[in-house]
Computed example of a mutant assay.
Amino acid sequence: MTTSTATDALTADVVPAATPPMPHVRTFKPRRGRITTAQSAAIDRLWPRWGFEIPDSSAVPLARAELFGREAPLVLEIGCGMGEAVIAMAAATPEHDFLAVDVHTPGLGNVLAMAERAGLSNVRVAAGDALDLLRDLIPAQSLEAVHVYFPDPWPKARHHKRRIIRPDAVALLARGLRPGGRLHCATDWAEYAAQMLEVLSAEPLLRNTAEGYAPRPAHRPVTKFEARAIQDGREVFDLCFLRAAAPLA
């Protein structure tokens, strides 16, 4: 993937607040996939204006006004896949901006192509590690919502440390949310859902909006992946938490 827009052009000269220390454990594995002509063309055409690569480290936060052309409530979607959910939500709430993050080039190309076809101006994409983005480029208390839909469950016990919903990563997610901001996760992996509930409930800055798992909110569309999971008989679990103004006792 080429980047004709330098990352430093998308950042402002402001020092971000201190962030919790993070072990350098990747929550994803690189995936190879065939990129279609339409996806490749969308990247070539739209990446300079609508996309950027997440650097390994940065001293300055994202310049949202330059990236989106305005200052609006920002929703971060981590692991956007092929983009059905983020495109549907961006179309439904044009007053919000959406930043879709993934490491899968065909998926990011698909997001760009769908956003262009739908005439959406409130969708941007970023390639790389979402935790690097949150640690270095997203100021504290600046996000309206964070969506983590169907992340890699890393089913083997020795790989559980790579799950994105783990205590140190959740502290970083909570830090990025404004007071009252929403962290919404979903998974079709029952054991991971139980761990998510335990970890999210233990984070002092978050409070659950439900008694345990939440019903699927109307704003979250059912993706093709989720439809297949349901067809295969797997239950889908939603977890909806709000960011408190101060740590809960």
Results as ranks from 00 to 15, higher is better:
residue 61 P to M: 11
residue 86 V to D: 07
residue 200 L to E: 10
residue 197 L to Q: 15
residue 169 A to L: 05
residue 76 L to I: 02
residue 94 P to F: 07
residue 56 D to I: 09
residue 6 A to I: 00
residue 71 E to Y: 03
residue 217 P to Q: 11
residue 65 A to I: 03
residue 143 L to V: 04
residue 189 W to I: 01
residue 21 P to S: 01
residue 230 I to V: 15
residue 219 H to D: 12
residue 186 A to W: 03
residue 236 V to A: 04
residue 36 T to I: 12
residue 164 I to Q: 01
residue 172 L to R: 09
residue 190 A to H: 12
residue 145 A to D: 02
residue 58 S to R: 13
residue 85 A to H: 09
residue 247 P to T: 01
residue 162 R to C: 05
residue 226 E to H: 04
residue 129 D to V: 10
residue 31 R to N: 09
residue 117 R to E: 15
residue 210 A to R: 11
residue 89 M to R: 15
residue 182 R to T: 15
residue 181 G to V: 13
residue 165 I to N: 02
residue 198 E to S: 13
residue 6 A to R: 07
residue 31 R to Y: 09
residue 96 H to D: 12
residue 199 V to S: 02
residue 167 P to F: 00
residue 218 A to N: 10
residue 49 R to M: 07
residue 37 T to H: 13
residue 36 T to C: 12
residue 85 A to Y: 03
residue 24 H to F: 05
residue 106 P to Q: 05
residue 145 A to S: 11
residue 183 L to H: 11
residue 218 A to Y: 05
residue 178 R to I: 06
residue 198 E to C: 08
residue 189 W to S: 02
residue 44 D to P: 03
residue 143 L to D: 02
residue 46 L to A: 10
residue 88 A to Y: 05
residue 157 A to Y: 02
residue 39 Q to I: 07
residue 37 T to C: 04
residue 201 S to Y: 10
residue 224 K to I: 05
residue 203 E to V: 05
residue 66 E to D: 04
residue 158 R to E: 12
residue 125 V to A: 04
residue 165 I to L: 09
residue 204 P to N: 06
residue 42 A to Y: 08
residue 126 A to C: 01
residue 110 N to Y: 13
residue 219 H to I: 09
residue 136 D to W: 13
residue 23 P to A: 07
residue 166 R to N: 13
residue 237 F to R: 10
residue 177 L to E: 11
residue 96 H to S: 12
residue 172 L to N: 06
residue 151 P to M: 03
residue 119 G to M: 13
residue 94 P to I: 06
residue 222 V to N: 09
residue 71 E to R: 11
residue 106 P to W: 09
residue 66 E to R: 12
residue 221 P to D: 06
residue 98 F to T: 07
residue 78 I to C: 06
residue 236 V to Q: 01
residue 212 G to L: 11
residue 85 A to T: 10
residue 181 G to Q: 13
residue 47 W to P: 08
residue 118 A to T: 12
residue 194 A to I: 00
residue 63 A to W: 12
